[in-house]
Design a protein around this nucleic acid. Structure first.
Lengths: 318, 318
DNA sequence: AACGCTTCATGTCCTAGACAATATCAAAAT
DNA sequence: ATTTTGATATTGTCTAGGACATGAAGCGTT
C-alpha cells in the first residue's frame, strides 16, 4: 500500500488523490466491510468500482465510501445487500429517509425523550448529571432494567432512523459507562456464590451490555470479575479456570453476526469444563434460533436474575 | 467455513477435529495474525502447516495456534518473524524463557509489587480497594502520572516476562477503569477552554490510555468529551465539528502498528480543519521517528499538561 | 397457516504471483 | 571512529477469478 495514497498531505502534485481516496484496508476499517466482501461486490454487483493507482491497487473515492456506509447501515437494519447494491443513488436516499421517518406510536417515556435531546444538543455533562440523578432515585438494579435497557433501545432506534450520529451514540455510551462504573465501585461487603466471569468475544466492541450485566449482578452479592471486551476464547477459558468461575457470562450486542456467535459459543463450550455454566445475554440472542447444548440464554436482564435465583436453588450449600 | 469444524460438539464421529482444530478465521481472531499473513507464512517459511478438511480448507491444530501466539508475543517485543519461524520448538522455548527472566535493577516501588501480587492472586476487589485508597491519598492527577502510568508499565513488563496472563492484565485494566471513571464522575463546575474530543482509532483496543488522558485533563477544568475506542476517522472528524472541539486527542498503545499510525494520523489531519489541533499520546509515540505536520506528540502525560498550558497562553481571551 | 423442498444470494476460502515499504548490512565518506 | 549512503533481504498486503457451504426466499403441499 502506498502511504501517499491514503494520506498524500506531503505530495501536492497528485491532486486527484489528496485526501479524496482511500485504500482498501482503510475502507475496511471505516465501513466494517471486509476486503473480500468489497472485492466480491465489485465483481458481482458492479459496485463499488474504485479507481486504481499506478500499481493497480484500488482507490475508493470518498463518495463511494460514503455510500458504502449508508448501505452497511441499511444492512444492519435488515435489508439485504443484493437489493441495496442494485439500487440507484436516488432510491437509496429514499430508503434511508423512509427509515428515518419516526414510527407511529413512539410513546417513549419522558426520560427517553429528554436524554435523546441532551445527546443531540451535545450536553454531555448534563446527560451525566441526569443519569446520575435517575440512578440515585431508583437504585442500581432497577436503573439498569427499567431505565438503561429501554434507553439503549431508544438510542439505537434513533440512530437507525438517522436522528443520531454514530459518534453521538458513542459519547452517550461513554457517559453511561461513567455512571454505571462509579455506582459499582464501592463493591459489596458480603460476597457469596456464585462466582461470575464476564467477557465479550472478539469482534464485539460494545462494552455496555457487559457493564449492564455486571451492574445487575453486583448488588446480588455475587463475585463478579470482568475481563472486558474482545477476549479470545482460549483466554476466557484460562480465566474461567484461574478465577474458579461458576458461571461464564458473555454479552452480545445486536450487531454481532449470529452465525459467528453460534460457532464461537459451541467452541467455547467445548473448551470449558461442564461444571462451569455459560450464560449468554444481550440483544443478539433473540435472533438465535437453535439452542446450543450447555449454554443458557438469558433473553432479558430480568431473565438473568431469575436464572441466578434458580442457580442458587440448585446449588444450596451442600 | 464448516461449523462442525470449529465446534464439532454435535458430531461425535469426526474425532480428529473435535475442538482440537480451528479454521483460519478463528486463528485470525485468536492470534491477531491476518489470514493473508497466515497463508503467506505457510508458503514462505513452512510454518504453520495446517491440516485440511474435506473441502480443502485449513484446519489449525491447537498446538500450532499456541505456537503462533508465542511467536506473536515475541514479535511484539521486537523479534522478527523470519528468525522466529525458522526456529525449532526448543529454540523458541529458550527464547521465551530468556525473555521471561526478570531484568536486573527492577526497583519497582512497593505499590507496584503489591499490585502485581494482588493481580496474581486474583483478588480483584482487594486490588480495587487498594487503587481507590491510593487515589484518595494522592489526588487524581498525581495518581495518574505518578502511580498509574508506571504501574501500567510494570504490568506490561510482567506480562511480557510471562509472569502475568493476558486475562489478568485485562482484569486489572477493568478495575482501574472503575476507579478512574468514578473519580471523574462528579465533573468540574467551572468549565473553561479548551474543548477536547478524545478517541482512539480503529484497531486500538485499549481504553486505558484514553481514560488516563481524560483523568488528567478533567481536573484542569477543560471540557472533555470522549467517544471511546475504535472510532473510524470520518466519525472523529464529524464529532470534532459537532462538539466544536479545539483539540482532538488520540491515544495509542504500544502495540499499535507505527506504520498504520502514521498513515492514519496524516489522513485524519487532512480531514480536520487546521484551526483544530491534534494531540497524540500514549506509548506508541516514542517509536514514531518522523514528525507529522500539524500533529502534536505528547510523549508523556506531563508533556500533555505542559502543552495545555502553552495552548492556553497562546489563546488568551482575545 | 405450517411444513418441506428447491433455487438463489452471499460471505468466505482457495491459489499463486507481484510489489512497496522497511530492516539489515556492508562499503564509503566524513 | 562514526556517520551516511546504497544494495539486498525481509515481510506485509494487494491482485485475480474460481469454488463452495450456509442461510434466505420462493413455492408447492398438507
Amino acid at each position: 500500500m502506498n502511504f501517499l495514497v491514503e494520506n498524500p498531505a506531503g505530495s501536492a502534485s497528485n491532486a486527484a488523490s489528496i485526501a479524496s481516496h482511500l485504500a482498501i484496508s482503510a475502507v475496511e476499517r471505516d465501513t466494517g466491510l471486509s476486503k473480500d466482501v468489497l472485492r466480491v461486490w465489485e465483481r458481482r454487483y458492479g459496485f463499488p468500482v474504485p479507481e486504481r493507482d499506478a500499481n493497480g491497487e484500488r482507490l475508493y473515492p470518498l463518495s463511494q465510501v460514503e455510500r458504502l456506509r449508508a448501505i452497511k447501515r441499511l444492512m444492519d437494519s435488515g435489508h439485504r445487500p443484493g437489493k441495496l447494491l442494485s439500487l440507484s443513488e436516488a432510491d437509496l436516499d429514499t430508503l434511508t429517509s423512509r427509515q428515518n421517518r419516526p414510527r407511529r406510536g413512539d410513546e417513549s417515556g419522558d426520560l427517553q425523550r429528554q436524554v435523546i435531546e441532551l445527546i443531540r444538543s451535545h450536553d454531555m455533562s448534563g446527560l451525566r448529571r441526569h443519569l446520575s440523578l435517575w440512578l440515585m432515585k431508583t437504585g442500581l438494579q432497577e436503573f439498569v432494567v427499567e431505565t438503561v435497557a429501554p434507553l439503549n433501545r431508544a438510542v439505537t432506534e434513533s440512530w437507525m432512523r438517522g436522528e443520531l450520529e454514530v459518534f453521538e451514540e458513542r459519547a452517550y455510551a461513554e457517559q453511561l459507562q461513567m455512571v454505571l462504573r462509579s455506582a459499582m465501585l464501592p463493591g459489596v461487603n458480603c460476597i457469596s456464590e456464585p462466582r461470575f466471569l464476564l467477557a465479550t468475544l472478539p469482534n464485539e466492541v460494545s462494552a455496555l451490555g457487559l457493564l449492564m450485566m455486571e451492574a445487575l449482578l453486583a448488588p446480588e452479592g455475587v463475585q463478579c470479575t470482568s475481563i472486558g471486551t474482545q477476549v479470545p476464547i482460549p483466554e476466557i477459558a484460562a480465566a474461567a479456570k484461574a478465577f474458579d468461575a461458576d458461571i461464564v457470562a458473555l454479552a452480545f450486542s445486536a450487531s454481532f453476526s449470529s452465525k459467528q456467535a453460534v460457532a464461537s459459543l459451541e467452541s467455547i463450550r467445548s473448551v470449558i469444563p461442564k461444571s462451569t455454566a455459560i450464560w449468554v445475554g444481550g440483544e443478539l440472542i433473540r435472533r438465535l434460533r437453535r439452542d446450543i447444548p450447555g449454554v443458557t440464554p438469558t433473553g432479558s436482564l430480568a431473565d438473568m436474575l431469575a436464572a441466578l435465583r434458580q442457580w442458587r436453588a440448585e446449588h444450596r450449600t451442600s
